[in-house]
């Protein structure tokens, strides 16, 4: 088994940081996490002397690391990962996933690569998890809106639930909109027509 690395992880996204930490720890690496911590990053790096710093690309702390790479002469000196490499595919996939990394000068690239691959994979799966969650939330909100619109239509048009749903579906097809969107419009219009209903609805 290769020598474990000391990794400093800078990420404000608690769930994602936990995912990355767990994955790296399971490969034997020692991980120090820095969440939304007021300690300055300079002090963190000086104290923990990590071999690798993995940082969320959206973190405002990135410029601090970039400048340490240039200004600090002491060892271990962090340098930007990929700085000397012309591997644009690897760089591209890291940027797309939102991962950036800084490593100690002189560390064998292949060893860092495996750490990067793990981080990129976790960042990507977190991203798709979040998309999935957003989609589920939207679906739930849509369903609630449809129920509410059906209720209003039934009252307003004196029809049954089945007919109300068919009305919504027809509107959606005619306008080329999602049924959830149409339901939202129907609610807006019908509630304006009879404001009293709104109070009762709540």
């Amino acid at each position: 088994m290769p020598q474990p690395l000391k990794v400093l992880l800078v990420d404000d996204e608690i769930v994602r940081a936990a995912m990355v930490e767990e994955a790296l720890a399971s490969e034997g690496h020692a991980v120090v996490c820095r969440l939304a911590n007021p300690t300055s990053l300079n002090d963190m790096v000086a104290r923990h002397q990590p071999d690798v710093v993995i940082i969320d690309m959206e973190s405002p702390d990135r410029d601090t690391l970039d400048s340490m790479a240039l200004l600090h002469r002491e060892n271990p000196r962090p340098v930007v990962f990929f700085a000397d490499q012309h591997d644009s595919d690897a760089l591209q996939s890291a940027v797309k996933a939102g991962v950036s990394a800084y490593v100690v000068d002189g560390l064998v690239p292949s060893r860092v690569k495996s750490v990067m691959d793990v981080a990129i994979a976790r960042f990507e799966s977190f991203q798709s998890m979040r998309l999935e969650l957003d989609r589920a939330r939207n679906q739930l909100a849509d369903r609630k809106r449809i129920e509410r619109a059906k209720g209003l239509l039934m009252k307003h048009q004196s029809c049954d639930e089945e007919q109300a749903y068919r009305m919504l579906r027809k509107l959606a097809m005619d306008r080329g909109q999602r049924i959830g969107e149409v339901a939202g419009n129907v609610i807006d219009i019908l509630e304006q027509l009879s404001p009293g209903q709104q109070e009762k609805g709540k």
Binding site: M57, E58, S59, P60, D61, R62, D63, D66, V95, S100
Partner: peptide
């Protein structure tokens, strides 16, 4: 949020 991120993007 950061110059380095703007640069990389």
């Amino acid at each position: 949020n950061a110059w380095s991120t703007l640069r990389d993007k």
